[in-house]
Design a binder for these strands. Structure first.
Lengths: 110, 110
DNA sequence: TTAATACATTGCAATATTACGATTAATATT
DNA sequence: AATATTAATCGTAATATTGCAATGTATTAA
């Protein structure tokens, strides 16, 4: 198989897992952290910054863009990337709801 | 390839991606949400609850346990699972730091 | 002891992911 | 126009993930 049976889960569960999946590779984490650190648009130097080959970085950027977490603007021959702030906030709220579920003391055995 | 080049990333980046990866499947999200909802140990009914075959659930539980996010206690013929609260809090702090990076207004082009 | 129950493990098929060389597409420069 | 630059896309190899049938293991019940 290798494919998740998404139809048996809620939209919320599928959405959480899609966001999580995109953070499930250190290169994409590194790209996002760099975009936050620079806090402006990064044109081109992500390949040097991260250290993977250009097609690989391009593929990771595509996934981040597809989920709406970054924006890309063509600027001459290069492309400028930055965090999509509104979508990042939306994602953050969804993930935070999941992570911040109540840990009330009431356990029986563990 | 199919394997991440973890050696070129920081420990923090690799840790974030490992936690995210385990949330990158809706079945594991559903299992965790169920454990939170019950808010005590769940003995046995996870297979009925989630709807995947027993070996599949067992495999997902193994991954969650391996990362330390759940605990499993043998209770007779069944095994009781619950959230590992301390580890969950640690994970939550790591993920929150990543998700809550500052979104200061200063963008050039995007 | 035997049978039943609950869960783990093994083995395998189908699909997904990661990485990159080669190529293509688009714009800039000369 | 010809060339250079930058990034996307294609194609492919290596590896990982998902799912489950079959089987194994441990505990309980009869």
């Amino acid at each position: 198989m290798g494919l998740a049976k998404t139809e048996m889960f809620t939209d919320q569960q599928n959405e959480i897992s899609l966001f999580a999946k995109v953070f499930g590779h250190p290169a994409r984490v590194a790209i996002l952290q760099h975009l936050f650190k620079i806090n402006s648009c990064v044109c081109g130097d992500l390949v040097n910054e991260i250290g993977l080959a250009q097609p690989t970085i391009s593929q990771h950027l595509k996934e981040l863009k597809h989920l709406g977490l970054i924006k890309g603007n063509v600027e001459g021959t290069s492309v400028c990337y930055c965090i999509h702030k509104e979508n990042w906030t939306t994602m953050k709220n969804i993930m935070s709801d999941f992570l911040n579920q109540d840990l009330i003391e009431k356990q029986n055995c563990c």
